[in-house]
């Protein structure tokens, strides 16, 4: 950084003494800010840790939740269970985005021919957002196989995935609709002025801008979906949480629960960081910085 700045620019400009002095002040301010940030962070974290560790029940908590042998022994079963969570998530996530986008677009259409679809979309979002996800999982996982329908799968994996997609599709639809409504009408007008059809306007002009704006709340729902894959344990699927609880029940030790939590975090945190970074980068590009 500093070596690049001291070089003479192609047009013969070299920073003046005042500018160098100013940069030094700015650098000092930056270093001071970093120091304050680090000190405050360390202090707060140390305080929290000290508070927990010095609490009267800490020894029992440590034994129950931070036992190394239990962590080691429960790891394999939980990892195996988490593979199911991960697969459900990987199937459900794109499905949720597709369902959510289609429902959102349906709700903002204006064609009279699509009136019944619009009504269906409204009923769908209202109903599925209003019902606890756990109930939908139970209804799909137990109710659908009980109907004995010909040609419908009885695989709990697919049935519970279907339930999660139904629920989260409704949430995501509303998030995306909010993004669509936030796009200024002049954008739509200028796209239509280029003689683009309504569909083309939505696909190439409105939707790309809308989605970018709602990335943070969208991530809320996707991370939440990832966590809620644990709900499928309610119909007896042996996923990570169920495996952890199983171990806890047999060995009277809760370390397995923390291990399961760790698995969920290992997926969720990098995913959120990555999307955050992608979004900020695309905004910077758009604004030409």
């Amino acid at each position: 950084m500093s070596s690049a700045r001291s070089a003479v620019a192609s047009d013969g400009w070299a920073p003046s003494a005042r500018q160098l002095e100013r940069e030094q002040v700015a650098r000092r301010l930056r270093i001071r800010r970093r120091w304050i940030a680090s000190a405050v962070t360390v202090l707060v974290l140390a305080g929290l840790v000290a508070g927990v560790v010095s609490s009267p029940g800490w020894d029992r908590v440590r034994e129950y939740f931070f036992s190394w042998p239990d962590a080691r022994d429960s790891f394999a079963a939980i990892a195996e269970g988490f593979w199911i969570n991960l697969r459900i998530f990987l199937v459900a996530e794109p499905a949720v985005l597709i369902v959510g986008t289609l429902v959102a677009i349906t709700r903002v259409t204006v064609s009279p021919w699509l009136a019944p679809l619009r009504l269906l979309a409204v009923v769908y979002t209202d109903l599925l957002r209003g019902v606890p996800t756990l109930l939908v999982v139970a209804l799909c996982g137990i109710g659908i196989p009980a109907l004995n329908l010909v040609g419908v799968t009885t695989s709990l994996f697919w049935l519970t995935t279907f339930a999660l997609v139904l629920c989260y599709g409704a949430y995501v639809a509303e998030v995306i609709r909010a993004g669509i409504l936030a796009i200024h009408p002049t954008q739509r007008a200028s796209a239509e002025a280029l003689a683009l059809t309504r569909t083309q306007t939505m696909r190439h002009v409105v939707l790309p801008q809308a989605v970018r704006r709602v990335v943070p709340p969208l991530m809320n729902d996707l991370v939440s979906l990832q966590k809620d894959t644990a709900l499928i344990s309610a119909v007896g699927v042996f996923e990570a949480l169920r495996a952890a609880q199983d171990y806890q029940g047999y060995h009277f030790n809760g370390t397995s629960i923390l291990i399961a939590a760790g698995f969920f975090l290992v997926v969720a945190v990098p995913l959120t960081r990555l999307t955050d970074w992608l979004m900020l980068r695309s905004i910077r590009r758009e604004q030409g910085r």
Binding site: W13, S16, R18, R22, V25, A26
Partner: peptide
């Protein structure tokens, strides 16, 4: 700014402080 000085009523405002 990358260099130079801006003053408002004689007081430098391009100062980072």
């Amino acid at each position: 700014i990358d260099d130079g000085v801006i003053r408002l009523e004689g007081k430098e405002i391009s100062d980072p402080l």
